[in-house]
Design a protein around this nucleic acid. Structure first.
Lengths: 294, 294
DNA sequence: TCCAGTGGTAAGTTTTGCTGATCATATTAT
DNA sequence: ATAATATGATCAGCAAAACTTACCACTGGA
């Protein structure tokens, strides 16, 4: 029913109007003049009405042509707009990435990383939200975010995980604690002291140091509370290095040498779900930055 | 710089989304399946990003594809809208004609003509304005209206004139006037009576009856006033039949048989200016209606 | 009358887009 | 398991579309 008006002939038409002639339009469009003539004639046949008439040798728009002109202009402009936007997104010049990260990463790692990314990709909008491991998993799984940054939780075939960095586990205690001056610790050294468990303590599970957990009677999930406990000298805890906030000048972080425990921080994505162009940009940027660093 | 997104591939893409598969889309579009595949691949190459990915054998939109879908939908819809409107106008199903007519035509002829036109072309808007001969000429010349209906004024190469009907000149007098009972008149019969000239009196110029004008001392341009004068029995006048309002039961119209004078009413257009499709419709309608009648 | 414009026309070539057959792969049924 | 039936991808061949070159017809101004 509806004939397809191809864009090229519409452009020809507009160019003829703008330049005032078939020859001039042909030059402007890098086409031969007959190509223009034929395209216009074809367009006229599709519409069933003449668009140009010859007034004293020159081509002049018919009333119908004058009616068409602004609509064709709009249509071509619309096309160009869509096309330009699509290319901008495809070429990672514009877009949006939604990221979820575990609090330690969000606060310790992301600020500088995102600053660099923002500079490299000024057109891409970023949304970063933090949440504990399970919440990050969930957000990635539900498609609320494209990329999650977390330690590997449960292997799940609906998710893919790519390691970014290894985060050493260590002991945190107050600076006047007997352990505070050591450079490295064997887990045995912790036995005499009160161990405060926290959300990351499960990282000890499956290692020799797991025994320590059995003797711990205190569990604090909130980081602020945990810090306060440690500052009060109530006991010691274990934390990944990234989760330890170095700004606290009364607290010390001592790496655990035996066993040498790490949590694998990495990039979590939905399996089988390709990234948006901007997500792709973010992923490669993060991989480059963090792979280089380790 | 900007690649041209042709409409057909966009339609293919949308059809794939709607039908949920390449094969189904191919059937819907009456194309072979490879045609769809190739068009999509070409589109992907132009944009520099994949639009579909294979998830479990089926094709699923990528995030980029999901971004594109609504814009492509809009663009295609825009095209179809413009296309449909243009075709409607070209096929004279919609549009607008501006007409100017001399008062006699506007009030005596146009009402029934336009009623018929409105029925035949329900989608076309009409604007009719009346004015004296010179004003009609001017409106056509300036492009304020496409079509004028008037008696031929001065031949002008910027205007084309096509005769529609011949309007007989006659004498108008009160029903108790000595001439009132005649069926036809020789101009000599008018000599004894007071002749009131009016705007149409120039039609007598160049004919034997021109002599009558020289003896007339009264000129009334306004039709209402003229009618009042005649009703008062002040004298007689000459008028084209169309300009004589038959509703006045005290006035009579007697055709002038010698000389047999007519004014040629016709269709006035700008020379070298083709009509809009709706103007074309109006012109042919008027020609058919009035040519048949005469 | 010629000359420099205009746009239109015709033959030939390149490009594009399509079909039909075939392939690789995954899901479903037997 | 294995066959049957989906999915989409690939390739060769062909036909239609679009373009180019060369030429024609017409107009308006030197």
């Amino acid at each position: 029913m509806l004939p397809d008006l191809k864009l090229a002939p519409l452009r020809y038409l507009l160019s003829i109007i703008d330049t005032g002639g078939f020859h001039a339009a042909a030059k402007q469009l890098h086409r031969s003049q007959p190509a223009i003539s034929m395209a216009v004639r074809d367009l006229e046949e599709r519409l069933g009405q003449r668009l140009f008439e010859k007034g004293n040798g020159k081509a002049v728009l018919t009333p119908f042509g004058r009616w068409c002109e602004p609509r064709f202009r709009e249509l071509v402009a619309h096309h160009d707009r869509v096309c330009r936007d699509a290319l901008a997104i495809a070429s990672q010049q514009r877009g949006r990435v939604d990221i979820a990260a575990v609090p330690s990463v969000a606060s310790r790692l992301m600020p500088t990383l995102l600053a660099g990314f923002l500079e490299a990709y000024p057109g891409i909008d970023i949304s970063l939200q933090d949440g504990h491991s399970e919440r990050v998993n969930e957000m990635v799984l539900k498609g609320e975010v494209e990329i999650g940054i977390t330690s590997l939780w449960l292997p799940d075939d609906a998710l893919t995980f790519e390691v970014l960095l290894h985060d050493d586990i260590g002991v945190v205690c107050r600076d006047d604690h007997p352990l505070a001056q050591k450079d490295a610790l064997h887990w045995h050294a912790l036995k005499p002291y009160t161990l405060i468990r926290n959300g990351t303590s499960r990282l000890l599970e499956g290692s020799p140091a797991e025994e320590l957990l059995k003797n711990s009677t205190l569990y604090i999930s909130n980081m602020i509370s945990l810090t306060a406990m440690l500052e009060a000298g109530i006991g010691v805890t274990t934390l990944p290095r990234l989760a330890f906030q170095e700004e606290h000048d009364r607290l010390r972080f001592i790496p655990l040498s035996t066993p040498h425990l790490q949590r694998n921080m990495g990039l979590l994505r939905r399996a089988g779900q390709t990234l948006s162009p901007s997500g792709e940009a973010m992923q490669t940027y993060l991989l480059n930055q963090l792979r280089d660093a380790s």
